[in-house]
Amino acid sequence: MGSSARKSLMIVLAVVSFAGPALAVEPLKLEEQLPKLIAAIKPKPEESKWLSIPWETSLWTARQKATAEGKPILLWEMDGNPLGCT
């Protein structure tokens, strides 16, 4: 281990050790914690129905697809892409 890598790891360990008792949240330590945590954080099926819609993210591509398929375009335009921002 290089000295800078060792220093970095020591900082991580120091922060993790230091952080424990003062925080409402226990520091992450074990990979076994992750699957349940990930499931708790990611969108639930009932929050994700709109994601079953095959959204395009280029208006021009949508135009090309619409004329090829003979369909109208449905544009959801927000300040922040609905698929990417909050």
């Binding site: 819609i53 395009e56 369909k71 109208p72 375009i73 335009e77 927000m78 921002c85």
Partner: peptide
Amino acid sequence: VKMAREDFVPVAMDDWYQ
């Protein structure tokens, strides 16, 4: 959702850029 999937070409964009 059904209409968006089947009857339209759906597209989501960021107005800030567009």
